[in-house]
Simulated assay, not measured.
Amino acid sequence: MSLALSDGLRDALSAWLDHERALKAAAKNTIEAYQRDVAGWLSFLAHHQGGSFGLAQIGRLTISDMRAWMAQERGRGVAPRSLARSLSSVKGFTRWLAEREGFDATAILSTRAPKYQRKLPRPLTAQAARNMIDTVELQHGEPWVAARDAAVVTLLYGCGLRISEALSLTGADQPIGEVLRIRGKGGKERIVPVLPAARRAVADYVRHCPFDLSDDTPLFRGKRGGPLNARLISKVTEAARLQLGLPATVTPHAMRHSFATHLLNAGGDLRAIQELLGHASLSTTQAYTAVDTARLLDVYANAHPRAKGI
């Protein structure tokens, strides 16, 4: 952070980050992103104001000041999506600070984020997802490694896990039961059901694995016995999708996208899917499952009493 910032402002930023970490259970990566975003904004303001910049100056900022910061960021090549994220961090910090210090933060909070086109995920078809799992298992000649890779990808598609969540499982989680207790982003815990196919895939891997899978050790291992690196699953997924002629968007995370979309298409409730995915916001789930107007109208037609002629 710039040396032109006052100690009070440095302390305020630190206190806000502690607040987000403790009360909102924000993940480590999220906290680091918040710190970069807000510190960058404050450093710009210190130079923009041409002198020492402290708590008192925050409440005097104008729309013009905010536009100047955003113009600088765009001039540095910051993409609209990234700038929108930074602005969200700035607003979160300012909202908290305004409540604490009692000043009017309207100029900052009313600043509009730049428009950007959301990149909706591209889920696989149900058949393509099955083909991916089968093909992943054929990528390695060593049986236990092949079984391991298939088990991980099956968990991504069968349970909607993030790759980090699948790789955080330990020996204590096996044998896999009908449900898994998953600790996701921000330390939030959720219960996800496990399909028989996923339980069988993990059990097959455990039978073949040459390492001791005791309670406090990682369930999925690398070839030398250490924790499995997520990059290896990305590489085996890439090899499988190339063999199947699937697009580059088919990644381990696309298996989670597909889990959510296929549940929705089968009539699953959007809020229930939100819980299964561990999303804090329903809007995130909507984007994740590529909800479109046709799907929403279909739900309406089947659920609304007036639509049924009642």
Rank of each mutant, 00 (worst) to 15 (best):
L246Q: 05
R306E: 13
G267M: 06
L282R: 08
A294C: 05
L277F: 11
A301S: 15
F259P: 00
A303W: 08
D298Q: 12
Q243G: 05
G226C: 06
D216I: 09
S214H: 11
A272V: 15
P247M: 12
G245H: 09
R241Y: 03
T249D: 05
D292W: 13
L276D: 08
T251L: 06
A290K: 12
H257S: 07
A266R: 08
V299M: 14
A254S: 12
L263S: 11
L276W: 12
A287D: 08
G268K: 04
H279D: 11
L228D: 03
L282C: 04
G225V: 01
M255V: 01
N229A: 07
D216A: 13
S214Q: 12
T251E: 01
A239L: 11
A266N: 13
L277P: 13
L297E: 14
R295C: 03
G225F: 03
L246W: 05
T237P: 00
T251W: 02
R256T: 00
N229I: 00
T251D: 04
V250K: 06
A303F: 08
D298V: 00
G222M: 05
A272T: 12
T217Y: 02
H279C: 08
R306C: 13
R241L: 01
G226Y: 02
M255Y: 04
R221F: 01
N229K: 02
V299Y: 06
L270C: 07
V299D: 10
A272H: 14
L263P: 01
Y300S: 12
V299G: 06
Q274K: 14
P247Q: 09
S258L: 10
I273A: 08
A248K: 11
R256I: 00
G225L: 06
N302L: 08
Y288G: 04
T251R: 07
S283K: 10
T251H: 05
G222P: 04
R221E: 03
R241H: 05
A303T: 15
T261K: 03
I233N: 09
V299W: 07
G278P: 10
D298P: 00
T249K: 02
R295A: 14
N229V: 00
A254I: 01
E275W: 04
R306Q: 15
G267Q: 07
R295I: 02
E238R: 11
L264D: 07
E275N: 14
S258W: 01
A294V: 10
E238W: 01
M255L: 15
V250F: 09
Q286E: 09
M255A: 04
Y300N: 09
A287T: 09
T289E: 05
N265Q: 15
S258I: 01
L213M: 06
K235P: 01
L219F: 09
R224Y: 12
V236F: 04
G222F: 02
L228P: 08
A260I: 01
M255R: 03
V299S: 11
G225Q: 11
V250R: 04
N302S: 13
L296V: 14
A272Y: 11
L277G: 07
M255N: 02
A239W: 02
L242K: 15
A294E: 14
N265C: 03
V250T: 13
T284S: 14
A290C: 14
S234D: 14
A239M: 12
S214W: 08
G267I: 07
A272N: 05
R231L: 03
A272S: 14
A303L: 13
H304D: 15
G278L: 11
Q286I: 12
D215K: 09
Q286F: 03
P218V: 10
D215E: 13
